[in-house]
Write a protein that binds this DNA or RNA. Structure first.
Lengths: 300, 300
DNA sequence: GTCAACCTATAACTTTTGGTTATGGGTTTG
DNA sequence: CAAACCCATAACCAAAAGTTATAGGTTGAC
């Protein structure tokens, strides 16, 4: 079985027809027919049964496909890596962060870093955790900045700082407490929920489920900033990370600490196997300082 | 980057020269030269620096190679799977077991199974645990029979029976105890050690290390049968699995139970994703009975 | 029942890829 | 300093993979 055979088999199996596979691979239909036939001849067994002009995969094909898929995932990421390695990025720091961090802290840190090092250049984007991990492996970024990630193989972590989840509410709303607020206090307020894919959202939702309280959820959102924005618009209260809560202090919300706060860490991620460039190392340290400072400012 | 490029790059990188790679892939040296050049042209960056007639991998090459290796392992196993799927084995049960089990229990079970089902056919071999897992995935065998394996993804387990580690000694040797023996009792005897790759050997060695006793190890062997054979020849005492100890009862050894015996399970392994054939299922049940019977016989 | 719209397979031909041998120019080494 | 390596290039060839054109099943709407 040659590599091209695998390629074609994969396309035919997953698109369920020779013609579709041809479109998928941007070649003509007869080409696929021929290569597939060639593969079967060489293997000595049918991969598809031709019945009434349709192809139905044989037992062997099903079995093979499972393995082929695995190889394919890797192959795909390899392709991308090989492309990404081509783009020269001397002295460029490529960073992806989760939206919560990317909208405020990172820009701030980058801006002040550039001020001090006018040589340095950045490429920035916001992604979700899993995409950040993929991008690291594909050589698309040098650093990922996230909340409390699970640990991944071949990924090293640098702690940048820590914070806690806080409650945000419209500033004009009068809440039953002054100092720290408990989950139970939120019970009869309109609540904006995080439908958490990220580690923080998951943690919070588990906690809420465990509390057995029946929250009056008026909206469920993906990103913390969106939750905060909803709160500012008077839609209800929400529990979000301290970073997002602290950003844009002019906005029309009040921030309350929780009675039993969930703490989290902010970490920078990089490949273990690839030594970080000196600029990157400097930037990580700079980030730590920026976050330190950010977190020590008086909360609104 | 085409697939052939990856193939050639892998060969050149791992054999450290174009000529060696050519031998490795059974093609001429200029062919490799050309394909490699083509790959570099297309990628837009050098994979190797040509210095004084030698090739030294660039930074990019190092990075790529790590990923390529992963893909390669999978690709290789895929190739084998595709070949193995070709060989028809209707009604044939293909089994690999660890040597300890393969030399006695399995043959016994197979023999009696054939007696009852004269249609059935077997292919047997002995392998170590990791090779058994690989063979399962490559479709080379239907069943693996092993001691206490760690769990592997996509591998299902059937418990066949259990036993314990026992001490074996030459029959004429007079040991300080009659009934159960402790590790401490073995302290000043010549000891045959298992340098355990398998799960059982590892477990035992950990236990011995923990006991802080200073064993007088005269030989270190790989398989239980070899240890037993050494014991029979008077080389010393050994701790081995009950199955091996019980096999060939005519041999010139005595078996003693340990004071704190390590128990183990015997398991059949099969792919989770591939339904076991009916004959295989029957055979697994037959194996359970055979082992049951084997273990209930009086120990020598 | 027939026609349009699918599908796949084959034939005939071209292009691209990967392969060959022959050769030449560097390095290293005994 | 020759012998024994290394790699690159040129000229040529075979196989693989691509093309268009065409033909023959199935299916479903009318």
């Amino acid at each position: 079985m040659r590599l091209r055979h695998i390629e074609v088999f994969h396309a035919v199996y997953s698109s369920a027809s020779v013609s579709n596979a041809a479109k998928l691979l941007n070649v003509s239909q007869p080409s696929i027919s021929k290569v597939l036939k060639h593969a079967e001849d060489q293997l000595g067994y049918r991969l598809f049964e031709r019945v009434k002009g349709k192809l139905i995969p044989t037992q062997e094909a099903h079995r093979l496909f499972k393995e082929v898929t695995k190889v394919y995932t890797h192959l795909d990421s390899l392709q991308k890596l090989s492309e990404n390695l081509g783009a020269k990025h001397e002295g460029v720091i490529r960073i992806a962060s989760t939206p919560a961090l990317g909208l405020n802290v990172i820009p701030q840190a980058v801006a002040s870093f550039i001020e001090a090092n006018d040589e340095s250049r950045f490429v920035l984007e916001t992604l979700h955790l899993d995409q950040i991990i993929t991008s690291l492996h594909e050589g698309k970024i040098d650093l990922g900045i996230v909340f409390d990630p699970a640990s991944y193989p071949n990924v090293q972590e640098f702690v940048l700082g820590s914070g806690e989840l806080v409650c945000v509410a419209p500033r004009n709303k009068i809440l039953p407490v002054n100092d720290r607020i408990s989950l139970a206090d939120l019970n009869d307020l309109q609540f904006v929920k995080l439908h958490g894919r990220g580690p923080l959202g998951q943690q919070l939702n588990r906690q809420i489920d465990a509390s057995r309280l029946d929250f009056n959820t008026v909206a469920s959102v993906e990103t913390y900033h969106m939750a905060k924005q909803l709160v500012a618009m008077g839609a209800g209260v929400a529990i979000i990370d301290e970073i997002t809560a602290r950003s844009d202090p002019q906005s029309d919300i009040q921030v309350l600490r929780l009675e039993w706060p969930t703490r989290f860490q902010i970490k920078a991620l990089a490949l273990e196997s690839e030594p970080l460039s000196l600029v990157c190392q400097d930037f990580v340290i700079h980030l730590q300082h920026t976050i330190d400072q950010f977190m020590s400012e008086k909360i609104t």
